[in-house]
């Protein structure tokens, strides 16, 4: 099985996010899935860029899809923002013939063309639907049953489900099922599926803080050992933003490590915390890591 892969802007360039890339590469390798990086990948022009100009954004995102189309491969991405953008490109090209023409006019000026044949898939949905929880359990080597985590799906992997071709649910369980194969206790708690305010960062910072504050209170009340995020913006908010919330809302005891979803899978597959970049996160992951490595094997 071979797929093109688009990593997005943030995942490969931010200190606390490169562990996401490292873990994803290891998980795919462990499961025997071959991937090729989109050559010279450019920004996917997600929702914030669509806010400035939708036509430009669709054409920008189509650039990476055109590259996948040239290679004859479908596209995987670990970034929920990218996933959302690429899904929107195909939807817009299918729904509005004028836009299909206009976008290709734009692409033609840089020697590109996109027919709309590339299917974009979020890595989590791909692992669940195409690989399956059973295969992941068969490949697991480390028992993770002594950790309780709060799993955040984030918004842009799920909504709107018709655009994204994701099973509709206000309370999804597919990503939980994957990590439960290693015995992880994925705690259901209020606010788990609510927005983290990530897209307001840099535009309405106070608002982004207040929404994040609610999410961190939710997780703290749930008493989890850590938060696990799928979306890179969720991670930046919960991990990097945690210091700000701690200070601004006087939450002195706030100390929740934030892991990337594929890091949990890779830990279950037996990889070491160091090779997954767990020491690069803003909030120290020592305590949860100690629990994991002291957990035992299966």
């Amino acid at each position: 099985m071979k797929k093109a892969i688009a990593w997005g802007c943030l995942v490969p360039t931010r200190r606390s996010l490169i562990g996401y890339e490292a873990a994803t590469r290891k998980v795919l390798d462990h499961l025997g899935i071959e991937t090729i990086d989109i050559p010279n990948e450019t920004c996917c022009a997600p929702f914030w860029m669509q806010s400035l100009d939708l036509t430009t954004s669709i054409a920008m995102a189509a650039r990476n899809l055109a590259k996948a189309e040239e290679m004859g491969l479908d596209l995987l991405t670990p970034c929920s923002g990218c996933f959302h953008s690429y899904k929107r490109v195909n939807h817009v090209l299918e729904t509005y013939p004028d836009m299909r023409e206009r976008v290709n006019e734009i692409l033609k000026t840089v020697g590109l063309h996109y027919d709309g044949t590339v299917e974009a898939r979020h890595i989590v949905d791909f692992l669940y639907t195409d690989i399956g929880a059973d295969k992941i359990r068969q490949k697991s080597v480390r028992d993770l049953s002594n950790i309780s985590i709060g799993l955040r799906y984030g918004c842009h992997m799920l909504k709107p489900h018709e655009l994204l071709n994701i099973e509709y649910s206000e309370r999804p369980t597919f990503a939980d099922e994957l990590i439960e194969q290693f015995g992880v206790n994925s705690v259901q708690y209020t606010g788990r599926h609510r927005c983290c305010g990530g897209l307001l960062r840099g535009v309405q910072d106070d608002l982004a803080d207040r929404i994040l504050h609610e999410r961190l209170v939710d997780a703290q009340d749930a008493g989890v050992d850590g938060i696990v995020t799928v979306c890179s913006l969720c991670h930046l908010q919960h991990d990097m933003g945690q210091r700000t919330i701690k200070r601004k809302f006087a939450m002195d005891d706030l100390d929740i490590p934030v892991l990337h979803f594929p890091q949990i899978l890779a830990l279950g597959f037996g990889y070491s915390p160091e090779e997954l970049g767990l020491d690069l996160h803003t909030v120290k992951t020592d305590k949860i890591v100690a629990k994991i490595v002291g957990g035992g094997s299966r």
Partner: peptide, 12 residues
């Protein structure tokens, strides 16, 4: 180069 070309042609 491609990215800036797209932005220019699209009117951003």
């Amino acid at each position: 180069t491609q990215l800036q070309g797209i932005m220019k042609a699209a009117g951003l």
